[in-house]
């Protein structure tokens, strides 16, 4: 994905995060949000290997071998950070103490089902902490490209890959649109600058509910 699109998604994710929130970001695209938290807004980031208060990446040469995030990348600790064991880390996650988690997806559907951990016969990396995160976080946001590399919609009527969790996703942020999962179905809340509502409908396999005023982001 082009850098400007990644930045656009990162900025849109950041709008969902509020001052004082405890947040867990999945590896890859979701971490873009870190660069877009407004000054004066304090968001505490968790890394599920056992830390709250994750800071920026260290400068070259200042990496600490005992300081990594859940993706294996080197990190720093902000003032007020804490370290804890993996069971405590997942007590924080599963116990509903994380305000929001942002994860990538292979597929997401109208009922808020998420598939992001395996493609049978192709890719079996394991679920890691994703199932616990999606089950326990107060708000589950999916951040992803709207279509896969073959141009197929990743927003579906029904996921056909093995699920990570059932009916847990509440918001989907893509390079084309922001979609809210509601009991009535997927609501097209916002579209990316330069696109039309029809562009999004054409690129989406799932049926969308189109409000009178669709905003740009």
């Amino acid at each position: 994905m082009a850098n400007d699109k990644r930045a656009m998604i990162g900025a849109r994710i950041a709008k969902e995060l509020k001052d004082g929130d405890y947040v867990n970001l999945g590896i890859g695209l979701p971490t873009e949000a870190v660069n877009h938290i407004p000054k004066g807004v304090q968001v505490l980031f968790q890394s599920e290997n056992g830390m709250l208060g994750v800071g920026p990446n260290p400068a070259a040469g200042e990496e600490d071998k005992d300081m990594i995030n859940a993706g294996g990348g080197f990190i720093t600790a902000l003032p007020g950070a804490s370290f804890f064991d993996s069971a405590t880390s997942f007590a924080i996650i599963r116990g509903g103490h994380i305000d929001a988690t942002v994860l990538g997806a292979l597929q997401v559907d109208m009922e808020g089902n998420l598939a992001n951990w395996m493609i049978p016969g192709k890719m079996v990396p394991g679920m890691g902490g994703a199932m616990d995160l999606v089950t326990g976080a107060k708000k589950v946001i999916v951040a992803m490209e709207h279509c896969d590399k073959n141009g197929n919609s990743k927003v579906l009527t029904k996921c056909n890959l093995p699920l990570t969790a059932k009916a847990k996703v509440s918001l989907i942020i893509t390079d084309m649109a922001v979609l809210q999962v509601t009991p009535e179905g997927l609501v097209l809340c916002e579209i990316a600058e330069g696109l039309s509502v029809d562009d999004v409908i054409k690129a989406t396999e799932a049926k969308l509910i189109i409000p009178q005023n669709v905003k740009y982001f």
Partner: peptide, 27 residues
């Protein structure tokens, strides 16, 4: 799932037979 793995190991160390978790329901 990582959180389940940790609790299952912890349970053994703590003398418990197992744990009840919502993680993985519907999967």
């Amino acid at each position: 799932p990582q959180g389940t793995l940790m609790e299952r190991v912890r349970a053994y160390g703590a003398g418990l037979g197992g744990v009840l978790t919502p993680t993985g329901l519907g999967t």
